[in-house]
């Protein structure tokens, strides 16, 4: 059933280029309760789940359409970055889950992103997303949206591939 919802979302994006651009350039708005991008009463964990599903769907849609849409091809590196950061987000915290989630919510929430009991699928796609984003960073000079990035920005992105958030944090284990 979740797969059907993701297909409907991809079809919806196909007819709304402005929304597609917004999800590629401003996905953080989905986490911001003040933005109205999602219903205001939604808790942080549900916002993350929907962001993760949207980032994954946008990536898949752009990858499918990139061969025939040069504009989509240009957006792919940004979509790859968002997908990796969104899917890996709950695994970046030393305490075990994001600070604004409820206690012991990590397992419950990460099992739901791609439908019930889909925790293994989340981990699989997070690793796939890490490899895809790493490949773009490895060839950043070939991609217009990355080629002019400052060296320290690229260093931060490389660090985020391998490490959790914060100083002296451990490896990002997916």
């Amino acid at each position: 059933e979740f797969d059907q919802a993701a297909t409907r979302l991809a079809d919806y994006l196909h007819t709304r280029p402005g929304l597609l651009r917004a999800l590629v350039h401003s996905p953080h708005l989905l986490l911001d309760p003040q933005s109205d991008a999602l219903p205001g009463h939604w808790p942080p964990a549900r916002r993350w789940r929907v962001l993760a599903a949207c980032a994954d769907t946008v990536w898949a849609y752009l990858e499918r359409t990139a061969p025939t849409h040069s504009h989509h091809r240009r957006l792919l590196p940004l979509a790859a970055r968002s997908r990796f950061l969104a899917l890996s987000y709950p695994f970046r915290f030393r305490a075990g889950s994001p600070p604004d989630w409820g206690k012991d919510e990590l397992t419950r929430q990460t099992e739901l992103v791609f439908g019930r009991n889909s925790g293994a699928e989340l981990v699989r796609r997070a690793n796939e997303a890490r490899q895809a984003w790493a490949a773009y960073l490895d060839t950043y000079q070939s991609h217009p949206v990355l080629a002019e990035a400052a060296s320290h920005d690229l260093e931060e992105e490389v660090a985020a591939l391998a490490f959790r958030a914060g100083p002296r944090s451990g490896p990002l284990v997916l």
Binding site: A5, L19, A22, H25
Partner: peptide, 26 residues
């Protein structure tokens, strides 16, 4: 632009779409 992004993400049918996604996740 940021304003255009905000406008695109606040359309009523977008809210209906994401509500459906969240429901199917649970």
């Amino acid at each position: 632009s940021p304003d255009a992004d905000r406008a695109a993400l606040t359309a009523p049918d977008w809210h209906a779409m994401v509500a459906c996604v969240a429901e199917e996740q649970e």
